[in-house]
Structure formats: structure tokens, C-alpha cells
Design a protein around this nucleic acid. Structure first.
Lengths: 363, 363
DNA sequence: TGCTCTGCTGTAAACGTTTCCGGGAGTCTG
DNA sequence: CAGACTCCCGGAAACGTTTACAGCAGAGCA
């Protein structure tokens, strides 16, 4: 009985003790063989055999306690249904996997307490580090970030003096690119469908929109500005409200999900896109190329930001004494059919029938 | 020196020893107070103060080693960019969160070795259990599932005798629903855009399509069947190939991403949807309602499957001795504008203009 | 043959926590 | 006032692993 307790774990699974006893060696030797370091040929054989016989699988928790590392990295984002995070995640994944670690994703649902709780719980050593992309940042939250027990990298805006590794973009300028493009195309009644103003990206985009209009000397008609959240349904509803009271000749949307919502609001209202209303989204996700007509969109370099964040994180894991760093990714505009009267979209050659140059969305 | 080593962790962070020493109590008392069990008012005060002063945060790894549980549950899916998994994930998340645990998501990218490696690594006790939705199942894989060290629930088809908790749907029948619907609407040249046949869902859908046509006495024209993978781009390309050589009056697609790809292939080729070609997707994700026209789609109850899988998992975590269980969720068809000549799609009331009762999809 | 050096091996300590158990102080009851 | 009972406390043993250290056998060399 006593021997049994010593040799297998509480739930009856074999431990290194079980293997060692069965192989007739000490646990030290067993551990060494299992880790592929040292051991005579004979010992190696015996331990390997014993391990296979009992179906030994190491307990990663115990190993982590000893080695002080788990080999796991976490990514916390607000809405995993937003393709921008999918792209970011893929970029992070490839960097993290290359370092022999695994990536875990956690969706916070935008509930800030959730996110803070995550930091307080998950970061208590379950992971070697984490990447967070918060859309709201409170003082509390910031405090949790600053004295996190594990390295943290933030993707997104942060107060200038926050001593936290940070990869950001300039979405203010990004919105400006969209407005510049539309103004250059002759649009003047430019509307804006945004997410909540109490979020960091929402506020930045709002500021960007206003300053861009001012720069062009266009007076802002408040009826052309509408707010929902950052998802499809709210974007569509917001666009519908906007269309019910104003006649824009262009719409800038705070992200691609909103833009798709706006596109459908426009189509349902019988507006032709881009002829009557031009449309520009933001984030330039794969979704932008999945609409018809395809969506012009401001790229905020989400994959690039993800890649850089992952690299910063790995560096910090390797050397905790690094000073806090900050990197910036410049926005750029991808012009597609939704905002050009001579669309760039070329239908794939399908039938011998003369492919129409103008998309048929509203045919 | 020796005292220091005893009181704080290797990287200099406070441990329960630090707190205990500072409060002048034993580590047992400190631990009890920290866990909110027992302790005199005076002890509680001292420990709380000491903990706050040194900024103590418990090491979850050490706690897990002792308690044999981590409070984490993992979900492994192939492609996190597929909205069907997003819906499943949301459903799982809410069940898991209600039990006080956290959900971690891992994208396997469909690489089967990756998935097996995940089981072998992550499941080595980093999580209390995991939900896996594999699209390919090899013997190796199955073996790893069966003797996983932690409870596993599989979402998807599995060999009948596999002793693993399993939540499945009947996508064969699901495809049948789509075909029935199209046949009833008078369509006869029904095409099919599928994913790879060496995947479990791909094979099931293929079988479902063939048997449904046979049931209706329609001879299958192989030129109307095309295969890509389960994502948008491949779906679009596959649909383009199909359209280049055949003239379907309807298309069934193996999932919604493929369907959106097919929709754009159709629009780009100048086909009117649904007038000339009706379209039915599969999974009934939110994406189906984000297209224009909105997409008819066969629901495979992904949220329901996720919910049930989470419940099975929690039950098994609570009682490992339960016999393997198997649950099934019935498919159903959501009919929308993409497959009905008198579309169900009603534009949201936007302008005072008399809202047309017949939607403008094809106006 | 005697010495050093090399290469394995086993003992035991650590990682940071929870928890069993025994002891001591205080309170209530008879 | 004695005894039983309650409550709180501290020591120490777990949880399963890695690893520093010391011992020991054998090989090579003088």
C-alpha cells in the first residue's frame, strides 16, 4: 500500500517513480533517460521499456513548477469573431510555434473585468507570457498590466508613459487615408459609422475622421455620423439609421465588419455601390475581399502588428530586464471596387460571355 | 541568504513563505487566510496586510500540482477563421465560464500531427479537459484520443465503437435537406461544391449529396461536382471551375465559407442569384446572414453541439468513471433569399418610401 | 600496481502550494 | 473546578518533476 502510494499518482496514473521502480533504477536515472540526457545504453533500454509498458506520460504541471516555464503563450482579444483578430492570431501563432511554444487564445468579450481577471488568473504562471489587445483601458487595467507577474505585450494604444511593451498603429492617420481617397474621388458628403467612443479605437477613429474633414475644409454634418459597436449587426443598424436621415455619397466604417453591415444596409435601401455611395472599411481583413463588390479598406497591419508583438514578447521572456519598447506600424489604404467608379475588380474569366466591367450587384 | 532563498521564489517574487514571515505566522496559516478558510481576525489582518505589502500573487502552477486541477479547459479546432467554430466556441465558453473555469482555444491548422502533438503536450495536465473537433481521424489520432490523460470530448464523427465522449450531427441528412428543398423548388441541375473527400465532413457530405439525388431519381452529372477546401478562396475557385464547364441551376456548398465564395463566383460570372442559380450553404453561421442576398443554409447546430460537448466534458471531469456517451444534434434548414425566387429577405425599413413587400435582391 | 580521470548512478533537495495532524489555549457545561 | 469541546496554530508531508552533489566502478596512464 505504502509503496503503491509512492509509485503512482493520486488518480492511478504512472509517475516517474513507477517507471523507475519497474526499470529497477532510481528516479533520477529514469528522469534523465526520459529527458534524453545521459544514461548508459542498458539503463536507457530498461527505462524506455518500462515507460512504454506502463504508458508513462510526464506531468507538465510538475515539470513547470520545477523549470519555471510552461512553454505556453496566451493571446487575449475581445472578439474572436472579428477577422482582424484571426489574422493577428495567425501571425502570432507562426512566430510562437517557431520558438517551440504553443499559443492559447482567450476571448474576453470586451468585458474589462474579464480581461483584468484573466491577467490576474492566467498570468499567475500558467503561461510564460501573454499578448493582450484591449479595446478599453482603465487605470485598474493598466495597473494590472504593469505589474503582471509574466511578460505582457499590448497591441493597441496605451498611455505614452506606460512601461509596457507596446505595438501600435495610427488609426487616426488611417481614417485620414480613407477620407483623402474619397475626397480625391470627388465625394463630399462623407459619412462615418463608428464603434463606441469610449473605446480606444473608437475614440481614435472619431478624432481622425474629424481632423481629416477639417483638413479638407469640409464642414462636418453630424447627421452623417453614427455609432454602433464593432460588429456586423450593429454596423448595419447604424448605417440604416444614418441612411434614414441623410444622403451620404460615401461612408467610412470603423472596421470591416461594420463596413459589411453598411454595405448591406446600402444594398437593401437600393443604393448602388460604389456609384451612388462609395464605401471604405478598415482593418483590411480577408472579409474585405469576400464581399461583392470587394471592399476598399484601410490596412492597419494587423498581421504585422501580431508578428512584432510576438517577437517583442519572446525577447522579453528571454530577458526580463529589457527596457519597455514601443513599435509602430503604419496604416495603408487598399483600394478596391467599393470606392471606385471604374472598379478595380475584374471578374474572373468564367464564361465566353463578355464579362461585364461593372459588377452586377444592383443589376 | 539562506533565509532569502527560503522566502522568495527564484525570480525574486514573493511566495507564501514571504508573506508568512512578514506577518509572523506559519505558512499554513498564511495559506489558509489567503484561501479564505479559517484564521482568527487578527491573523487574517496581519496576513492580508503582509500580502498586500509585498504584492503577493499565488503561483497557479504550484497550486495545480497540489490540487490536481488547473481550472482550464481547452478547445482545439482546425480553423479559427471559420465562423462555425466561433459559434461553437461561444457556446462552449458560456458553459465553461459558468463552472468557474476558463476556456483556451488552440488552432491546429488541420495538420493532424499538430493536433496529436497538442493532445500529447497540452493534455499532459495543463488543462482539466479538452474538446476537440478533428476533421481528419487517423488510427494514431484515435489512439491518442482514447488514452488521453485528461478527459476529452470529440465534436464530430468518430468510429462507432470508439470509447470517447462524442457529440455529432448528421451532415449526410443535412445535405439531403438542402437537396430536397432545391428539388421542391423545381431545380434539377444541382451542383455541389465540397471540401476534401479525405476529411470526415467532406466524405459525409459527398455521400449525402449522392444519396439525396438518387432518392429523387436524379442522375448525377459529375461535371456538377467540384472540390476545394473548406475556405472562401478555394470555394470560389472551385465554383469558378464548375461554372466554366457546366450550367447548374442550383449549388449546394459544404459550408458557408465555400458558399460565399460560390456566391461571388456566380455574381462575377453574371449569374443572378437566386433567379438563375439558387444557392444553399451549410453550418448556418452568422456569415450566412451577412451576404447579399442572404444565404440559405443547413444548420448543423454548431452552438448546440458546442454546448452539449461542454456539458459532457464537465460531467466527465466531475466523474471519470462515466461510460462513454454519444449525443446527436439534428440538422435543419434555414431558408433565405439565396434559394427562393420569392425571397424571404425583407429590407429593413429605411426611407419613408413605401417599403416594397418584395425585396430588392434581384431588382 | 597505484593514481587520476571519466561516466553513471542514487540520494536528496528543491520548485510553491495545500492540507493532515497533533497540540495548546480558551470556553462552556455539569 | 474538572472535563469536554471548539477554535486556531505550526510542523511536516504531500503533489511529480528536475538537478546538484557525492559516491563508485572502470579505464587509461605512469
Amino acid at each position: 500500500m505504502g509503496r503503491k502510494r509512492l509509485q503512482e499518482s493520486a488518480d492511478g496514473r504512472p509517475t516517474v517513480h513507477t517507471v523507475a521502480a519497474r526499470a529497477g533504477v532510481s528516479i533520477a536515472s529514469a528522469s534523465r533517460v526520459l529527458n534524453g540526457v545521459g544514461g548508459s545504453p542498458e539503463t536507457i533500454r530498461k527505462v524506455r521499456e518500462a515507460a512504454a509498458e506502463v504508458g508513462y506520460v510526464p506531468n507538465a504541471i510538475a515539470r513547470s513548477l520545477q523549470s519555471q516555464r510552461t512553454g505556453l503563450v496566451a493571446l487575449a482579444v475581445e472578439d474572436i469573431g472579428n477577422p482582424v483578430y484571426v489574422e493577428m492570431m495567425r501571425a502570432i501563432e507562426s512566430v510562437v510555434a517557431a520558438s517551440g511554444r504553443q499559443l492559447l487564445v482567450h476571448a474576453t468579450g470586451g468585458r474589462i473585468d474579464n480581461e483584468t481577471a484573466l491577467l490576474r488568473r492566467l498570468a499567475h504562471r500558467y503561461v510564460d507570457g501573454m499578448i493582450v489587445s484591449p479595446i478599453r483601458v482603465t487605470d485598474d487595467h493598466l495597473a494590472a498590466l504593469v505589474d503582471s507577474p509574466v511578460p505582457v505585450v499590448v497591441v493597441g494604444q496605451l498611455p505614452a508613459d506606460a512601461p509596457v511593451d507596446n505595438v501600435r498603429t495610427d488609426s487616426r492617420t488611417g481614417v485620414g487615408l480613407a477620407v483623402d481617397h474619397l475626397v480625391a474621388a470627388g465625394r463630399r458628403r462623407i459619412g462615418f459609422v463608428n464603434g463606441p467612443l469610449d473605446t480606444v479605437p473608437g475614440a481614435a477613429r472619431d478624432a481622425g475622421f474629424r481632423s481629416a474633414l477639417a483638413r479638407h475644409g469640409i464642414a462636418l454634418d453630424e447627421r452623417l455620423v453614427e455609432i454602433g459597436d464593432f460588429r456586423y449587426a450593429a454596423g448595419r443598424a447604424a448605417a440604416e439609421r444614418l441612411l434614414a436621415r441623410a444622403e451620404p455619397d460615401a461612408l467610412v466604417c470603423a472596421n470591416d465588419l461594420i463596413a459589411v453591415g453598411a454595405l448591406h444596409a446600402l444594398l437593401a435601401a437600393g443604393r448602388r455601390v460604389p456609384d451612388e455611395v462609395a464605401l471604405v472599411g478598415m482593418d483590411d481583413t480577408e472579409l474585405a475581399q469576400m464581399t461583392f463588390p470587394q471592399l476598399s479598406s484601410v490596412s492597419l497591419g494587423s498581421a504585422e502588428r501580431g508578428r512584432r508583438a510576438a517577437e517583442l514578447l519572446l525577447q522579453r521572456i528571454a530577458d526580463a530586464s529589457l527596457p519597455p519598447r514601443r513599435e509602430q506600424v503604419a496604416p495603408s489604404l487598399a483600394v478596391r471596387a467599393s470606392s471606385t467608379t471604374t472598379p478595380l475588380f475584374v471578374p474572373a474569366p468564367a464564361e465566353p460571355a463578355p464579362a461585364p466591367r461593372t459588377p452586377e450587384v444592383t443589376a
